[in-house]
Design a binder for these strands. Structure first.
Lengths: 243, 243
DNA sequence: AGAATAGTGTCTTTGAGACACTATCAC
DNA sequence: GTGATAGTGTCTCAAAGACACTATTCT
C-alpha cells in the first residue's frame, strides 16, 4: 500500500491479440506486417494501445479485433491470456502488453482493402520452429497461447469455438488433432464427446455432404466445463510463463 | 498496429499479490489494512505501483513480496495470475492491476514492527462468503487465485510450495484437502502421490514425530507437471474471468 | 463393386475409490 | 493394553484405447 506519494510511472499499456483459427487442418494465427520501426517489416500480433480513460481491457481487445482483423467480436471466444512487461521488450520505452486469446471459426481470407490489409494467417508451426521470426516477444506470447488452447480443450468446450455454428463430430476431431498435434481414433472420439453431458447437442434430422456417409450435425451445448474431460494423450505439458 | 499517433494514455500500473498459505488446516490469504482513501480501513491485497522504467513485472512482485509481507521472495512460488483493468475499479482514476499468485509455507505470524505491520492472514472462506468485504475488486482477484490454485494442484507439484522443505505425505494431503475443500482417503492418497514419477522424493532414513507411527519425510521432486494427475473429486469448476 | 466416412459393439488394460488389514509410535 | 497415525493388499467399478464390424453415401 505505498500509494501515498508516487510519481506516475511512464508506462504505456498495449493490448495484443493472439487469434487462432483452423485452416487446412492446421492451427493458424493471424499476423500483421509492421509498417513502422521498430521491427519494421516484421510479422507481429495485431494490437494497439489502450484508447482512453474509460475503456475496459476487454473492450479494447474487442475494438482491436474489429479494427485490425475485421472480425465480429461479438461472435467469437475471447479471453485474457497474460501480461508481458519485461522492461526491455520494446526498444521505444516502457510498454506493457496485455495479451488476449481469440478463437475464430474458419473465416474468409483476411480481406485486402480493409484496415486489416497486410494481415495474413500463418501456421503456428512456422513460428514455434523459429522459421518465421516475430517482432518483440510475440513468439513467446503465441507459445503461451498455444499451451493455453491445448489445455483448455481438455476441460472446456473451447473446441466448438473453432467450428461453425453447426458442425460434425469429425470437424470437432480435426480441431483436437490440429491443436494437440496428435491423431485420435475416430470411433473412440465419437463416443467420448457424446458422453460428456451438455458438450454438444444434436441438430435434429440434419446432415451434410462430404465423401462417405453423411454425418449428423451438432451445436455447442450449454456446458462451460467438460465432465468428464477429454484427456490429451501425451499428457499435460509445462505451465505457462508470462514475463 | 495503430502506434503512429497516440497520446500516452494516463494509466497507472499496479502489482497486487495474492499470497496463500496453510494455517490451522485452512487456506488463508495475506491482507493488509488500507491506511488511506479510497477504502480507508478496508482489508486489501498487498501491492503497489510499478516502480520505475526498468523494473520487470515479476521483479516488482518480488519487491512487494519483500516490502509488504517480509517474505523471502526467492524461496516461494510466484506466478502471474491475471490483469484487472475495468475502467471504474479505482475511483481515483485509471489503474490497471497485474495480480500475482504466491504460495508460501506456513510461516510466522505477519510480524508487527516491520513494514508488514497491519498485515494479517485471513481464511479465504471469510472472503468468498462475503463476510469480510475487501477494497476494489480484490474479492474477485482472490476468487480467481483460489480457482487457479485448485486447478494447478491437479496437474503441477504446486502443493509442495505450501509445505516446508521436507514434509510427510499427510502434510501434503492436508494441502489438497484444505485447498479443494474435500476429504480424501489417506490410503489411496498415499499410493497415488507416490505413483507420480518425480513428484516427491523420499528423504533417506528420516522421520518425524506426531502422535501415531512416525512418517517418512519427502522433498519436492524435479517434476514440473504431474503424470498422471491428481484428479479433483468434484471435477473442474468454471474457468477464470479476468476483467 | 470399391473407396471413403459415419456410427456401434466389445474386449482388455488401467486407474480410482472402498476398505480390510498390518506396523509403529504415545499414553 | 487403547488409540492414533503410517503404510500395504486387494476387490470392484468405470473409463481409455484397440479394433472388428455394420451403415450409408459417392464414383
Amino acid at each position: 500500500m505505498s500509494d501515498e506519494n508516487w510519481s506516475p510511472p511512464p508506462v504505456l499499456l498495449a493490448v495484443d491479440l493472439v487469434i487462432f483459427t483452423l485452416r487446412h487442418s492446421q492451427l493458424q494465427v493471424l499476423l500483421v506486417e509492421r509498417g513502422i520501426d521498430p521491427y519494421r517489416g516484421r510479422a507481429a500480433l495485431p494490437g494497439g494501445f489502450l484508447n482512453n480513460d474509460s475503456e475496459d481491457l476487454l473492450a479494447a481487445a474487442h475494438r482491436e479485433l474489429d479494427e485490425e482483423a475485421d472480425l465480429d467480436a461479438a461472435r467469437l471466444h475471447l479471453e485474457q491470456l497474460g501480461t508481458y512487461g519485461a522492461a526491455d521488450r520494446d526498444p521505444r520505452g516502457r510498454v506493457v502488453s496485455v495479451a488476449y486469446l481469440a478463437i475464430a471459426p474458419h473465416l474468409p481470407e483476411p480481406t485486402a482493402g480493409t484496415d486489416a490489409a497486410g494481415a495474413a494467417w500463418r501456421p503456428v508451426d512456422a513460428i514455434t520452429s523459429g522459421e518465421l521470426p516475430l517482432a518483440f516477444d510475440h513468439d513467446v506470447i503465441i507459445a503461451d497461447g498455444i499451451e493455453r488452447a491445448r489445455s483448455k480443450l481438455e476441460h472446456t468446450p473451447l473446441a466448438t469455438a473453432f467450428c461453425e455454428p453447426t458442425f460434425t463430430i469429425s470437424d470437432l476431431q480435426q480441431v483436437y488433432e490440429a491443436v494437440w498435434g496428435v491423431d485420435l481414433d475416430p470411433r473412440n472420439f465419437y463416443r467420448k464427446v457424446q458422453k460428456v453431458p451438455d458438450f454438444i447437442r444434436p441438430v435434429d434430422a440434419e446432415r451434410r455432404v462430404t465423401k462417405g456417409r453423411p454425418a449428423r450435425l451438432f451445436t455447442a451445448g450449454p456446458a462451460t466445463s467438460l465432465h468428464p474431460p477429454i484427456p490429451r494423450p501425451g499428457g499435460t505439458a509445462e505451465p505457462e510463463g508470462q514475463r
